[in-house]
Design a protein around this nucleic acid. Structure first.
Lengths: 360, 360
DNA sequence: TTGTAAGCGTTATCAA
DNA sequence: TTGATAACGCTTACAA
């Protein structure tokens, strides 16, 4: 039944139907809808109101978009919907957009950054009014295109080189410090920062740099503190195993610790430890970016740095809304702080003398 | 700069521009675009082709939608984007849609099923050509609305009562059996099936029923086999703790095991065990629906029943495409099998005499 | 204060 | 084979 009814479908009422029903012109109906404030004879207004209700009329956004160029649509491009971080952002953004009466058009890159241009093209063909981009930023031109189309863009988590646009992100430098300092205070001395291939992804670079500078700044006051970095790839578990073994060996009598730059990497590290039969916290300290629902239950609990993901998404959407309402300011940067959630993975079983690092 | 350029934006080329550039009529351009097969003078065709390329013209989907009523848009309604299962489905669907040249409009209910009608309304205002629904199905009328609009609907994972629509889902009965039999074969005898509040959510009901009937069918041949069910709610950890304690007590000398009906519940069970200091597998056997990336690393590893989520999403999208191409068949049901991934959580440390249950 | 009419970018129906 | 022209549903000058 639902599939064969070509005609019984009562075909949405159009503005013309309402006009006829109310015995007025289309223009009047349109005015009633859009500029209630302009003086309308109460009588007429009432008639239109009744007709609208009777026909359950609501204007076609498509026709509106065509006429006005405004679609009440926001384009959201995500590098990878399977990434929990992206999803969390998506969720926040979607909520905020809905509240503001916008709908989200979604384009997932599936981690193929070559699609980036295509995504923006497709979305902007649908007259989306603005973009929220959480992409690798590899294809700088693509995003710039969007801006060239005169449409506001908000970048989330990852900057695009040379792109002048609002930018919403975790305070990466601060978060790295938070994690690194925590490890040091817990007694770990040989630190390894593990990231996905840095390439040119801005957030990865920032975290990497922040780690190095933390080590540089802190080493003078903490005897024996050493730091290195490592890039982990999807399929090279061996390399990771070796890096960790190497790490522990370097540590010698000191404690070895790892900071993983996101949940994906964290999981790889956990897998590696499982392969080698090491104990979290004891054999290796671990602090991971991105708090997840399962973090508390891995081994003795994973110490994590939580990002305010929902807030990130909401803010991105809000920034966009402001731009859509004509706000004409230079690009803004909004950095939100991470929160450290200490759990067992950063507790060495052998007790050590506590060290307090002076703030800054 | 990107925000203030109101005019330099080179305003998409329209079909009229192309026509002018090629020195032909709009109609000709339109024909070239849509009905290449109809005879066009090669000369003209070539000229149009050149003009299209020169202006980088691509037709406005909005205008098209207005004219033809077809928008190349699919509406996707998800009960909760934070649910990993929903996301996985979303991902599969998005991919398939993109490949078929459709874009996805997303509406997230945020678990508030009262929005369901609003969602469908909003989406159908944008002329989406069809719906993929992964909702609670509480508001049966809402989904029916969509069908009334004459638009095809595919239901994922959750049936709607009285809704005649294509339905794509895990073979819940089979999956429950898979898990339950596994537990029994591993030696567990006192079984507890834990679900979120069943309400009227079809997949939850099906799993619940399948569990009971497994127990009914299997008890005769397996001495001492007992089964019960329990509904776990978000915030009542105590109730769950008690249920598990009770479970183990009933088991007496036998082994107690749990089947959790999705990843969320699994996590609750894991949390409960952590509170009570129980060992997975030993103190309680556990098989959980939904395999996740973190499953292998919780305790001795979580035994799970993996759903082919990506496939589910793709299939849903494909069903929809077929309907859009006019396929007029009675509603189909597509059930995909789950896959059991045995890990440590279903291995009792005390060895027991193995039992093989005859298939069926 | 309301109505008429043009036009947004397409496609489809006619003539030519 | 191609070109006017009239829609699609809406908004907005401009007239009345």
């Amino acid at each position: 039944m639902p599939f064969s009814n070509k005609q019984p479908s009562p075909a949405r009422a159009t503005i013309a139907d309402v006009a006829r029903e109310a015995g007025v012109s289309k223009a009047t109906v349109s005015r009633f809808l859009n500029h209630r404030e302009t003086l309308l004879t109460p009588d007429i207004a009432a008639r239109v109101e009744v007709a609208v209700a009777a026909l359950a009329y609501s204007p076609s956004p498509m026709a509106r978009a065509l006429k006005r160029g405004r679609s009440r649509l926001i384009g959201l491009v995500v590098a990878d919907v399977t990434n929990p971080f992206s999803v969390a952002v998506l969720r926040g953004a979607e909520k905020a957009c809905q509240e503001a009466g916008y709908l989200l058009m979604l384009f997932n890159l599936g981690n193929d950054s070559r699609c980036e241009g295509k995504a923006i093209e497709a979305l902007s063909a649908y007259q989306v009014e603005g973009f929220i981009l959480n992409t690798l930023g590899g294809d700088a031109g693509a995003a710039a295109d969007a801006a060239r189309h005169g449409k506001p863009v908000v970048l989330v988590d990852r900057r695009h080189h040379n792109m002048q646009a609002d930018f919403v992100s975790l305070d990466n430098a601060g978060a790295v410090q938070l994690g690194a300092r925590h490890l040091v205070e817990a007694g770990y001395r040989e630190l390894l920062f593990i990231s996905e291939p840095v390439k040119n992804v801005s957030s990865r670079m920032e975290r990497d740099v922040a780690f190095r500078s933390f080590i540089g700044n802190t080493a003078p006051e903490v005897p024996g503190l050493q730091g290195r970095t490592f890039e982990s790839t999807e399929d090279d578990g061996d390399a990771l195993d070796n890096a960790l073994r190497d790490q522990r060996q370097r540590a010698g009598g000191r404690l070895a610790g790892v900071i993983s730059s996101n949940a994906v990497v964290t999981l790889r590290v956990v897998a590696s430890l499982a392969r080698m039969g090491w104990q979290l916290g004891t054999d290796l300290g671990l602090v991971g970016f991105d708090d997840t629902e399962w973090s508390p239950y891995i081994g003795p609990g994973l110490t994590t740095i939580a990002q305010p993901t929902d807030e990130l998404g909401r803010l991105a959407a809000h920034c966009l809304m402001e731009r859509l309402q004509g706000l004409d300011l230079p690009p803004r940067q909004i950095l939100l702080s991470g929160r450290l959630l200490p759990r067992g993975s950063s507790v060495p079983s052998v007790s050590v003398a506590p060290v307090i690092i002076s703030a800054n």
